[in-house]
């Protein structure tokens, strides 16, 4: 059965007409056209589909689109503060080469955003714990850690 789901995606009210057994991930990618969120394992193991729902990161593959009714969803497409303006995390990931094949990057950026929002100066252990649900198959973790730490310093400097 099709249902109409009203929600807010990246600050804009949207509605999606979806099958009730459709995952939020498939709805975002195929119905809304936001393909930045990646489908890796589709069973909640890899974290590539991480989006932020009502302020909390979740795997979009493990949520039904109908469950997003009335909720606020943030995806990688909404991370940029403006046209041609990158989020400090995106900028740092580019400068540090923290992206190899790039498939895990949107999920890691969303998770890193949440991490820095909650904890502006994370230790290596905090980052390790925060990203433990995101797998980089290229294993480029060192540069990912470097980029997150650099972005944290820049974001803190910008605030003060």
């Amino acid at each position: 059965m099709k249902r109409i789901v009203e929600l807010i995606i990246n600050g804009e009210p949207r509605d999606m007409t979806v099958d009730s057994c459709r995952s939020l991930l498939d709805a975002l990618r195929d119905d809304v056209g936001l393909t930045g969120t990646k489908k890796g394992c589709d069973v909640g193991d890899c974290g590539a589909c991480t989006v932020i729902v009502d302020g909390e990161p979740v795997n979009a593959c493990l949520m039904l689109a109908v469950e997003a009714e009335g909720r606020t969803v943030e995806t990688i497409e909404g991370l940029q503060p403006g046209v041609d303006v990158l989020h400090p995390l995106q900028d740092a990931f580019m400068r540090y080469g923290a992206s190899q094949c790039g498939f895990c990057t949107p999920g890691i950026l969303m998770m890193a955003k949440k991490l820095l929002d909650d904890n502006p100066r994370p230790t290596d252990e905090d980052i390790r714990f925060g990203l433990s649900g995101n797998i980089c198959r290229c294993t480029g973790y060192t540069k990912i850690f470097d980029a997150i730490k650099a972005a944290a310093i820049e974001m803190e400097a910008a605030r003060s």
Binding site: G44, G47, T50, E56, P57, V58, N59, L62, M63, M111, G130, S132, G133, N134
Partner: peptide, 9 residues
């Protein structure tokens, strides 16, 4: 249990 993303659901 699982990951942060899983534990949020």
């Amino acid at each position: 249990l699982g990951s942060i993303q899983v534990r949020n659901r």
